[in-house]
Design a protein around this nucleic acid. Structure first.
Lengths: 117, 117
DNA sequence: ACAAATACATAGATTTACAATGTATTAAAT
DNA sequence: ATTTAATACATTGTAAATCTATGTATTTGT
């Protein structure tokens, strides 16, 4: 019924996570990205194919990542890496996300100032 | 073009924010909630009517909040407050959101462990 | 008198991610 | 040898969340 509790909360962060991991590891392929997120979050965040591949294709279409096809036996593996524009976008996206996390954290843990201005 | 930078990232948090503020202040009306969030986040998070009112109606339909109509002159003002079920849900929602914020923070700031397990 | 703020609300569009499904190769288990 | 699970790519259709735009009406400030 509720296998992925963070499902609804995850919205909007997927692209930033992908960019961040590519920035960290240099190059990764789709399946590897999903496994990496799964392991890093101890199974708490699961990126599904239906989210991952469209996200990668969109990032590629926007010129933020590029892919390099490598044959592993008879199987194609697509390694993605950041473009220069992607590196700039990554730094910006991470800063925005961290700022957002702080803002939300503040909003749900601190006494609101409204009412005594 | 980009008046609300947190727009896409905000998804999934609105309900929790509303519950949290009602828990904090006891009772609030819609417009007050929006103003409170705006002031608390220094304008970085803006809740629009098109998000706010459907969210409030949904919370009410789910039995987590109740409203009390108060006439201010000729104008109706709807004060919302948590039900007992709402108080339980609030605690849970805040914990889940904080856990999620930590998970995402960890994901975008820490060296991934994947690769050396 | 007029503009801005207050205060409610809905309809339609967009975005995001997921579930379900599909194809194919490779490794492991029986 | 055959089956199963894991690897690895992908698409289609669906559901949910939020926004934009719009609407109504009252109150306050100038």
């Amino acid at each position: 019924m509720k296998p992925n509790p963070s499902k609804e909360l995850l919205k909007g962060t997927l692209t930033t996570i992908i960019l961040r991991l590519l920035s960290e590891k240099g190059k990764m392929y789709g399946y590897e990205l999903a496994q990496c997120v799964k392991e890093t979050t101890d199974g708490k965040v699961l990126i599904k194919e239906g989210s991952l591949y469209p996200a990668l294709h969109k990032l590629e279409a926007n010129g933020l990542i590029e892919c390099e096809k490598v044959m592993i036996g008879k199987r194609v593996r697509k390694y993605y890496h950041l473009t220069p524009a992607g590196e700039t976008a990554t730094a910006k996206a991470i800063n925005e996300l961290l700022d957002f996390l702080n803002t939300i954290h503040h909003l749900i843990t601190t006494e609101p100032i409204y009412g005594n201005t």
